[in-house]
Amino acid sequence: MKKTLTNREKEKLSRILAMDVTLIEKLSEHDILDTSACRAVIIRSEYYEIRNQGRHNGGHIARALADAYGLSRSAIDLIIYKKESNKKCTCTCCGNPVSKYKFSRYGGLCDVCLVKQVEIE
């Protein structure tokens, strides 16, 4: 199930980007907008807007945003500070995705590349 932007999120996005709401609705209808990227822009904007008011702590704002958008606190932190999840590791040899456990356990290699290194006489 592909998530779409709500009307409230479309209005916020139009305010942030200084675009007409109808244009954003048309882009959304044609699946041109990346909903997760749009939500990230909205969340980041709301965070800094509330933070600049000076009445609330950053941790409290992040927790409130997590509740409002149904995300975890760590996901909100990743969005706010524009960080990438540390769970994304790639094999140093072939570039295929590898779990963090295998990356640290096998020295950055995936199972296929590790098997290629085994020498059989």
Rank of each mutant, 00 (worst) to 15 (best):
C93G: 12
I79T: 02
L65N: 06
D20T: 01
E9F: 04
E49H: 13
K87D: 09
F103L: 11
I16T: 03
K88L: 11
A66R: 03
A64Q: 03
K82Y: 03
V98E: 09
K82A: 08
T22V: 15
S74V: 12
I76C: 00
D31K: 08
C38D: 07
I79V: 05
R8I: 10
I24Y: 04
I16Q: 02
H60F: 14
Y81D: 02
L78Y: 03
I76L: 04
A68K: 04
T35Q: 09
R63I: 02
M19D: 08
K87A: 15
S104V: 11
K26E: 14
E49F: 14
V41S: 05
V41A: 09
A40P: 07
K100C: 15
D20I: 07
N86I: 13
A66K: 06
K88T: 09
Y101R: 07
E46K: 05
S36Y: 12
A37M: 11
I61F: 00
A37G: 09
P97R: 09
E49A: 14
T22L: 09
N86L: 14
A37T: 08
G70I: 04
R51P: 09
A62N: 10
P97H: 00
A64H: 05
Y69W: 12
K83N: 13
H30V: 14
L78W: 00
T22R: 10
K83H: 11
A66H: 06
G59Q: 00
T35E: 14
Y48K: 02
V98F: 13
S14T: 00
N86Q: 15
C38P: 03
K87M: 12
S74G: 14
H60A: 01
Y48P: 00
M19F: 14
C89P: 08
R51F: 00
V98K: 05
G59A: 01
I79D: 04
R39Q: 03
G58I: 00
L65H: 03
I43H: 01
G59C: 02
E84D: 12
V21I: 08
I32L: 13
L33G: 07
C93K: 15
S74D: 15
F103A: 13
I61R: 04
C89A: 15
G70K: 10
C91N: 07
R8Y: 11
L71T: 09
R8A: 12
D31M: 09
T22Q: 09
L78G: 04
P97A: 02
I16S: 01
G59T: 02
C93D: 10
I50P: 06
S85A: 12
D34S: 09
